[in-house]
């Protein structure tokens, strides 16, 4: 990639004209609103915008729920991402076998959650989590006790983690499949000759080769997870869950915006999210190194 970079040509005029449509809309609908939201975070917002200094930030830092919401998101990510990655790796390795029939079909169905509305999906899962719903029917069929999915702080978190795994596994599977196809067969063949078994190959070759892809996916998921609010809002009437175990930063932002109608504070919360996301991206850059640029 670096070599190609150097070959990049210098036809500025044409480049500018091709960028122009995007730039116009980017500036009007994204850049200016973003700058305005930064300004909002230092203001009291009503039909006039009055500068109030740091008081929005002081107010959100005083609220224990603000920290709890970050804590919750990191709990969700800590458990959901490794499981998602592992499952996706398994599916990807299996689907990468040329001998398997119907690979395209499996891959397509697995990818469906990535292209459907989260609201629709969560609404259906809500019925599955009912005390007498599908999941408990399965649990009891295997001789287990019915699980209080949405009404116990521990299980409430599990419920959210299950949905987020379900939503993301397909996306990761396809992502990893693409990565696997770039690993040349020769590496495995020489490993075979060295007498490495399948599991050793998986951990010694597959995972290290996929490291940049895995890392990118993890950071992106965490950034998305910060803003997620649909799933908790639909599973729990108030988005809180038992002992506020389901509150994400997104839920807190949503409530501050549209229940409290405090857009100054909401913008302040948003900008803490930007800062956290930026830090995570820097970490990704450092760990991932050059080969994972952007």
């Amino acid at each position: 990639m670096n070599k190609r970079r150097k070959k990049i040509t210098n036809f500025s005029k044409a480049a500018y004209s091709m960028m122009l449509p995007f730039l116009i809309f980017f500036i009007i609908t994204i850049l200016i609103p973003t700058i305005m939201s930064l300004w909002f975070s230092f203001s009291q917002v009503s039909d006039s915008i009055d500068f109030v200094g740091l008081s929005n930030f002081k107010a959100i830092f005083k609220d224990p729920l603000f920290f709890k919401s970050y804590y919750n998101v990191f709990i969700f990510m800590f458990f959901s991402i490794p499981i998602t990655v592992l499952l996706a790796l398994i599916f990807a390795v299996l689907l990468n076998k040329p001998t398997i029939k119907g690979r395209g079909f499996f891959r397509t169905v697995y990818y469906l959650p990535a292209v459907t509305s989260i609201v629709a999906v969560s609404s259906v899962f809500l019925t599955f989590y009912n005390p007498t719903g599908l999941f408990n029917a399965v649990v009891t069929a295997f001789g287990g006790q019915p699980i209080p999915w949405l009404t116990d702080p521990f299980w409430a978190r599990v419920s959210i983690i299950i949905i987020s795994i379900w939503l993301n596994v397909g996306y990761y599977t396809v992502l990893f499949l693409a990565g696997l196809q770039n690993i040349s067969g020769e590496i495995y063949e020489s490993a075979d000759i060295d007498g490495a078994n399948s599991f050793q190959q998986f951990f010694k070759i597959t995972i290290p080769m996929l490291k940049p892809v895995i890392l990118m996916g993890m950071i992106l998921s965490t950034i998305n997870g910060l803003g997620a609010f649909e799933v908790p809002n639909i599973l729990f009437k108030n988005g809180f869950g038992p002992e506020s175990s389901a509150v994400t930063v997104g839920v807190n932002l949503y409530k501050t915006s549209f229940e409290m109608v405090d857009f100054g504070k909401a913008s302040a919360i948003s900008w803490t999210m930007v800062i956290v996301a930026a830090i995570l991206s820097v970490i990704q850059f450092i760990i991932g190194g050059k080969d994972n640029e952007a």
């Binding site: 116009i24 500036i27 009007i28 200016i32 700058i35 305005m36 006039s48 915008i49």
Partner: peptide, 20 residues
């Protein structure tokens, strides 16, 4: 401050665009 005044402030960027 009215939002419109702020928009004037970022007009440096917006000047490119007749629209805004």
């Amino acid at each position: 401050m009215k939002l419109s005044k702020f928009l004037g402030g970022v007009a440096v960027v917006a000047a490119v665009l007749t629209l805004a």
